[in-house]
Design a protein around this nucleic acid. Structure first.
Length: 757
DNA sequence: GAGCACTGC
């Protein structure tokens, strides 16, 4: 089988071959001849090390030596000062215990609470015992987030006194910071999954660590299922599942009763307070609690968890106002409120690290910082100095309804694990307090133990395609830790079958194999792959890139009118997809490129989103070229320029079509699922289109379809005849409209045939 | 006449 790799891989492999060409020791075909001495020759610091038989004492000796065992360079003085601090970490006391379990078993579950040092130290413990250099392999440690992979790699490179990207590196989307010398690689879990799709045995690794496994991301869950199979084919591969305390036994059971090692963390105690009675309005209660803390508690910053941007901005405003009143009337200390959520520009996010405001006069009451945040402060961002946490017990969570194939965000009660994590945020620097705005009874009886893993809350179309590409044929018996509902799985298989990515027996088709190469939703991948047939792959590529990044249109509450005017400059009467294309073209134009920041600001566009779309576009373009898909455009003057693009959109999104209801203005009904929907008010679609294609179904106060483009039913019959098999539609408005379209289509074809005769 | 929690390839 062809060993195809993702393109960043391809790059590093090419690099590796080139760099290694001169040295027979580095030639993979000759490597076995050097196995005894490779990296562990007599002069090496590792000479006395027997793989998987080392001890903490042995490692300590090398760590305390004069020269770096990995690159032969003398250790810097900074190395020794960091080493001293490392030895104080809780994990260090159990290094021998860890080594014994690691050596004895193929799979190990490691539980380390925050502050234990697990993410930085355990991979180094492994390195000194696994000696991957002697196997020409690597040790991998996965993280759910890119920033974590980068920053931990940087930290560990410093601890090991090596240059980042050499012996210690990281690999994330858009950036491969590794070299042929890399022995320890931090990477995102999604990246390892990508690699697995081309190397089902993950043969480049001698040990794989899945860190933060308790977060149960989609990628972690799939990787765990995969690794469970790989360990049977590769007895030489070792696996470490690293997690926070909760649910450790579940991991143990899943991995055939793997041994468990638990290391305590280093945090301060947090006192928990509950409300005696349930609160009616959690936002109002939260604001009241924050102000109460300010009035009655000692110094220390406050972290309040709310669910979304609007709620947060609103609460922040109210707390600021009330706080100012407290300063005036009760001589309270000054209070500074910072909103925090993902779509906030980075420089605004950075502001949360500013020190709290000083007292208003010498000797006055100390100032206090209040951070009002989404869940982003629960895992992604840690803020030191928080002493008080206010937890109303809610967050927005993604849920998936397979019956109508809709993912939506819903404000839901958090889990016990989440509540514990939130409380923990108060004890990072000193003992703290957590105020839960629900009763103790509710905590015990109503909150679920763990947030449902993502795999149970998502559309599985792309996951199923990935699994097929990973060589998993029998999905039903694939051992996932939490198997999704059969209906969700059936929906995904059905969707992939309609997209022709899977045949009727559920086997990967050529198109499916190609689609899996793209880091995209299968529908968007199919759209992109089909686009050369419609003479518009350049344009579809831009649209797909824009559809895979956060919203490009910015609409600040204070300047809505102005923002809408600017958006209208890019509007295309036939719909939002074409408007996105106009935005992209304008962004790449000379005017915008002269000063992109200013231009985006002036036009109410998000520079961050546009730049990231540009990045995505480049990545996708490289895959298109590698797969020899043609990059073509219809000449702009051609009257079919936009029509071709709209047809190509149908090639991927033909399952997301709505038709106007005969009665009722702008009321639409979705095809097949028969959901009543409204055009999202943000649409630029200028006319009452009979048929529209939509990108997204949003469930909020009403059912909306967002990002819509006008299309013709004839195109659907032409492009997706199986899905639009008229006989499968019940008698009614939609069916008769399709029949009329079919008539028009055949008349046209007949006329064309007549002309040819 | 609207609301994108968060993350990833």
């Amino acid at each position: 089988m062809a060993d195809r790799r993702s393109d960043s891989e391809e790059g590093s492999r090419a690099k590796r071959q080139k760099m290694d060409a001169g040295d027979p020791k580095n030639n993979p075909y000759l490597a076995h001849m050097y196995e005894e001495t490779n990296g562990a020759d007599k002069n090496s610091a590792f000479a006395k090390f027997k793989r998987h038989q080392t001890t903490a004492a042995l490692a300590k000796k090398v760590e305390d030596g004069d020269n770096n065992p990995f690159n032969g360079q003398p250790f810097s003085s900074k190395y020794f000062s960091i080493l001293k601090a490392r030895r104080d970490l809780p994990v260090h006391a159990q290094r021998d215990e860890f080594l014994q379990l690691y050596q004895q078993s193929q799979i190990l579950v490691f539980v380390g609470e925050t502050g234990s040092g697990k993410t930085t130290q355990i991979p180094q413990f492994v390195l000194f015992d696994d000696l991957p250099q002697t196997q020409r392999k690597m040790v991998a440690c996965t993280q759910p987030r890119r920033v974590a992979a980068m920053s931990v790699a940087q930290r560990v490179a410093a601890e090991m006194d090596v240059k980042l990207g050499e012996e210690v590196g990281y690999s994330i989307r858009f950036e491969d910071m590794t070299s042929p010398n890399t022995l320890l690689k931090y990477m995102t879990d999604g990246m390892l999954l990508r690699e697995a799709m081309n190397d089902h045995n993950l043969s480049r690794y001698s040990t794989i660590m899945l860190d933060e496994a308790h977060e149960r991301t989609m990628a972690t869950d799939v990787l765990m299922g995969l690794l469970k199979e790989v360990v049977q084919r590769r007895p030489d591969l070792k696996i470490i599942i690293m997690s926070a305390t909760l649910d450790a036994q579940k991991f143990q059971r899943y991995f055939n009763d793997a041994p468990l090692l638990a290391v305590p963390g280093r945090t301060h105690p947090v006192e928990i307070f509950y409300t005696p009675e349930p609160e009616q309005d959690y936002v109002e209660a939260a604001i009241r609690t924050v102000l109460q803390i300010h009035a009655t508690e000692g110094d220390g910053d406050v972290l309040l968890f709310l669910t979304g941007e609007e709620e947060i901005e609103d609460a922040a405003r109210k707390i600021t106002m009330e706080g100012e009143e407290m300063v005036r009337e009760a001589d309270a200390g000054p209070i500074k409120v910072y909103p925090l959520y993902g779509s906030l520009p980075p420089h605004m996010q950075q502001r949360i690290f500013e020190p709290p405001p000083p007292p208003r006069r010498p000797g006055g009451r100390p100032g206090r910082k209040v951070i009002v945040s989404t869940n982003i402060a629960e895992t992604s961002l840690t803020i030191d100095g928080i002493v008080y946490v206010v937890d109303p017990g809610f967050s927005k969570q993604k849920i998936y309804n397979p019956r109508i194939r809709v993912e939506s965000l819903l404000v839901s009660p958090i889990s016990k694990a989440s509540a514990q994590q939130r409380a923990g945020r108060a004890g990072r620097t000193r003992p703290g307090k957590c105020f839960r705005l629900y009763t103790e009874g509710a905590f015990k009886k109503e909150l679920i133990e763990q947030t449902y893993p993502e795999i149970l809350r998502s559309n599985l179309a792309s996951t199923v395609l990935e699994l097929k590409k990973l060589g998993i044929d029998d999905l039903v018996h694939f051992d996932l830790m939490d198997p999704p509902a059969p209906e969700t799985l059936m929906r995904a298989l059905e969707e992939l079958n309609y997209l022709a990515c899977l045949d009727d027996d559920g086997n990967l088709t050529q198109l499916g194999r190609l689609a899996s190469e793209f880091p995209l939703d299968p529908a968007l991948a199919v759209m992109l792959i089909s686009s050369p047939e419609f003479y518009c792959s350049n344009e579809i590529l831009s649209i797909v890139a824009l559809l895979s990044v956060p919203q490009v249109f910015v609409r600040p509450a204070s300047q809505r009118k102005r923002a809408d005017e600017m958006k209208n400059l890019f509007a295309h009467p036939d719909g939002d997809h074409l408007s996105l294309l106009n935005v992209y073209h304008a962004f790449k134009g000379a005017d915008a490129q002269a000063n992109p920041k200013q231009w985006c600001h002036d036009h109410f566009l998000s520079l961050r989103s546009l730049q990231s779309a540009d990045n995505v576009r480049m990545q996708l373009l490289r895959i298109m070229e590698r797969e020899e898909l043609e990059m073509v455009s219809t000449p702009f003057e051609d009257k079919k320029y936009y029509e071709n693009i709209r047809r190509a959109l149908c090639a991927g999104l033909f399952m997301q079509i709505a038709k106007k209801e005969s009665q009722g203005k702008s009321m639409y009904i979705t095809i097949k699922d028969n959901q009543n929907v409204l055009l999202h008010p943000s649409t630029v679609l200028a006319h009452d289109a009979e048929w529209v294609l939509y990108n997204e179904f949003v469930l909020t106060t009403k059912n909306y379809i967002r990002t819509v483009t006008a299309i013709k039913p004839e195109w659907l019959l032409d492009i997706a005849p199986t899905y639009y098999d008229i006989s499968s539609f019940p008698k009614g408005d939609i069916r008769s409209a399709l029949v009329r379209a079919a008539d028009r289509l055949s008349r046209k074809e007949k006329m064309r045939a007549d002309k040819r005769r």
